Computed example of a mutant assay.
Amino acid sequence: MNENTPATPVQTPLVSVQHLKKYFSVQGGLFEKTKEYVKAVDDVSFDIERGETLGLVGESGCGKTTLGRAILRLTEPTSGSICFKDRDIAKLDRAQMKEMRRCMQVVFQDPYSSLDPRVVIGDSIQRGLNVHHIGDAKQRKEMVIDALRKVGLQEYHLQRYPYEFSGGQRQRIVIARALVLQPEFIVCDEPVSALDVSIQSQVLNLLKTLQQELNLTYLFISHNLSVVEHISNRVAVMYLGKIVEMAGKKELFNNPLHPYTQALLSAIPIADPKARRKRIILTGDVPSPLNPPAGCRFHPRCPLAREICTRLEPELSQINDKHRVACWQVTNYE
């Protein structure tokens, strides 16, 4: 390379999570002392690039929602760093965090419970603008109308209450409420699981369109692998508070390496009635996060478990440029 040729700048990720933990204390006894901890999120690290969608999948209770809430500091993390645009938001005070929340929004699972039934939707959407003192009354109304139109609703909907809308429309309203502050990053926590299948596709397509138009970045949390395959660029698989596999969407769905990921993918229905897929049935129950097993947390249910799996916890190792997995079977430990 010529000495005068400028070096290509290295693009830093929009969100970088390093060694994030969230433990919930369990108290008991006469003096309500902490007896043990629920390890909901235990030493999780990953990056999210600007403009991409990272899908986060796993069984119910694996810590997906807690991870999403901890990244936004809706739940205070126990330890670890959460860098957003190179600022560690885990260290920000209340005033600094309030300013940062304009850039980081959330879409919750149940669109009805996340809207105040006593408030018309125009006021619900505008509340964030009021909190952050953005614009005057006329400008705020214009911004609310613009956000509504982006999600396919109109100005005359402003004075209606949440009960006057269908489930899909309510979720559009929640998305509009997130968009009105012009965020860069949105955590979508099971945003379509409460909707009919036909409405799910409409909301997913809306999210993809908005991402392209507004250069949004998503963390998309779901237990539905078909939905994640449709919307995500990369996918992280979570089990009992740990990420066990992470790869690009095509790589993960075509070449799953972790036994848990293989079991999840084997349960996806196939549209072709003549097609057959070998179903992997996992035995046993998910261990308690109060007392996770030693070694690999999946080993009590894993059909490929070896002696090493019961003693040592595997790290999330790099298999190739875009594929990481935490499994002794894959990394060929001797």
Rank of each mutant, 00 (worst) to 15 (best):
T5F: 13
P9K: 09
V15M: 13
S16K: 15
H19A: 14
L20T: 03
K21G: 00
Y23G: 11
G28F: 11
G29F: 07
G29S: 09
F31R: 13
F31V: 06
E32P: 00
T34I: 12
E36W: 02
V38M: 04
K39Q: 11
V44R: 04
S45K: 02
F46P: 10
R50F: 08
E59D: 06
S60F: 06
G61T: 01
G68N: 08
R73A: 03
L74S: 08
T78W: 05
G80C: 06
I82V: 15
F84V: 07
K85Y: 07
K85Q: 15
K91A: 13
Q96I: 01
Q105S: 09
Q109N: 08
D110K: 08
S113Y: 13
S113L: 07
D116V: 07
P117N: 07
V120H: 13
V120I: 10
I121C: 09
S124I: 02
I125T: 08
Q126G: 09
N130R: 15
V131D: 08
I134F: 07
I134Y: 10
K141G: 12
A147Q: 02
R149T: 04
V151H: 03
V151E: 00
L153W: 09
E155M: 10
E155K: 15
Y156S: 15
Q159W: 05
I173N: 02
I175M: 07
R177M: 11
L179K: 12
Q182T: 10
F185N: 02
C188T: 05
E190K: 08
E190M: 09
D196T: 11
I199P: 05
T209V: 10
L210N: 01
Q211N: 12
Q211T: 12
Y218V: 01
S222F: 09
L225E: 06
H230S: 13
H230K: 09
I231E: 03
R234W: 03
R234Q: 12
V235A: 10
A236K: 02
K249G: 00
N254Y: 13
N254K: 13
N254W: 09
H258F: 00
H258Q: 03
T261K: 02
Q262N: 01
A267T: 12
I268A: 03
I268F: 06
I270Y: 06
D272E: 11
D272W: 14
K274S: 14
A275Q: 15
K278Q: 14
D285N: 14
P287E: 00
S288E: 02
P289E: 00
P289D: 00
N291H: 14
A294Q: 11
A294F: 07
P303F: 05
L304M: 10
E307N: 15
T310L: 02
R311C: 01
R311L: 08
L316R: 08
L316P: 04
S317E: 14
Q318H: 03
Q318N: 03
H323K: 05
R324M: 04
V325D: 00
E334G: 14
